[in-house]
Design a protein around this nucleic acid. Structure first.
Lengths: 177, 177
DNA sequence: CGATCCTTTGACGGAAATCAATAGGTGTGG
DNA sequence: CCACACCTATTGATTTCCGTCAAAGGATCG
């Protein structure tokens, strides 16, 4: 677990979406996050705990190699401060995810997830701000929320009946309010 | 969510232990981590998502104020790289916690927790390496693992009967192997 | 139009939560 | 030193939410 080295590379997602996941030996998969345009993907060569990043749709990323970053940072010290701050942001997102998984019910998890996606993606949405795209399949959402996909499906149906969800299709949702 | 600023302060835990927690509005508490000697606590003034840090026992921390850090970093650019790397480490711990909460059974959670504490604290242990102190009360462990304390208690009893735990008292445990 | 994949719905079972009571530790004061 | 109160932990009985197993419905593509 060597520390003290800068990131080897930095990727910035320009268009599309990604999922990040970790796997247990027996195949169980936990999705640890989704990435939307503007998000960073840091990758270190000395990566101990393997995790996976996969595109959910056609996507474009911008790649800043190791040396390039170093060169920029030498001229502009604020760059490293931004990387530190970005790390904090990622950490706080992870903490929110931990609270979701540790304390929330299935219905609360699904509602939190839908609001999160709406917030992450909504800024780019054209026209109807309340229509939120869901680029990932149900299984990915379930694996993010720590639920079985049947439970997710039932919970979505329940939210629709309750009126919290106005429209629901495979790849988009319209939330109430 | 302003980024682009360095940490306002940095604390390093020298002796003792802390718990970090987040709270939902209705009082539910999730413990997001425990700190042992050598761990860092970063605090930013612009902290949006409030979380709480509390000592579990008499502890000592070393405080590096904002300006002091900046002064050091100006002379020694490696400091910021280390802060970036440390952030990655924290992030990876959070991801392991997410996998634990999202995918593991009660028994797996308790085993993972005990091994984590043994690993975090064991390096300082004197004499019998397999005796692991548990400075936190059962309720804190349960809130870390996303379990009720009754479930934790039953699971510990089960592990003892299985032989995975040799000795168990309120504030320490001896693991098999 | 059929094949395949993804999603939804149904019936049932089980792991953990909840409700409730007991036991064990710790500290205080008589 | 014992008795009492208080707090933490364990154990027991029951419920419930979600997981598991199974089948059917809908979308997408060649």
């Amino acid at each position: 677990m060597e520390e003290g080295e800068a990131n080897d590379s930095l990727y910035v997602l320009v268009q599309g979406s990604f999922r990040l996941s970790k796997h247990l030996e027996d195949g169980r998969r936990q999705i640890t996050g989704f990435l939307f345009p503007g998000d960073f993907v840091g990758v270190r060569a000395t990566e101990a705990s393997a995790y996976t990043a996969e595109a959910l749709e056609d996507s474009r990323v911008c790649h800043f190699p190791h040396k390039f970053l170093d060169a920029i940072a030498a001229d502009c010290p604020g760059v490293k401060d931004r990387l530190i701050a970005r790390g904090q942001t990622e950490y706080h997102k992870a903490q929110d995810h931990i609270v979701l998984l540790g304390k929330k019910t299935a219905e609360e998890r699904v509602e939190s997830f839908l609001r999160m996606v709406a917030k992450s993606i909504g800024k780019n949405a054209s026209g109807d701000v309340s229509e939120t795209p869901l680029p990932m399949p149900r299984q990915d959402i379930a694996d993010y929320l720590g639920l079985r996909l049947e439970t997710l499906s039932r919970t979505l149906a329940g939210l629709k009946k309750k009126g919290a969800i106005r429209e629901l299709s495979r790849h988009s949702v319209v939330l109430a309010e």
